[in-house]
């Protein structure tokens, strides 16, 4: 299984993206896509690999919550 949970970008510093997962925050050091504050993204190994539409991300997070 290689599924990832989407997180929300809450800060962008120089070459660093702070991504919030509700219960923790993680740092990405590179992004393969153009991103902005508030975007929902998927991280793999400290790298943002894709951006999700807000509705898609929230739908996925709701599924995770329901299955928790």
């Amino acid at each position: 299984m290689c599924l990832s949970i989407p997180g929300k970008i809450v800060a962008i510093e120089k070459d660093r993206f702070v991504v919030d997962y509700g219960n923790e925050q993680r740092i990405a050091e590179l992004s393969l896509v153009d991103v902005a504050l508030g975007d929902y993204v998927i991280i793999s190994n400290k790298m943002i690999v894709t951006k999700l539409k807000k509705e898609q991300a929230q739908q996925f997070l709701a599924l995770v919550d329901n299955n928790a």
């Binding site: 299984m1 599924l3 990832s4 998927i42 894709t50 999700l52 898609q56 739908q59 996925f60 599924l63």
Partner: peptide
Amino acid sequence: EKGYEQVQEEE
């Protein structure tokens, strides 16, 4: 299958 049932196209 096998955990990917609800996965959307992008992911």
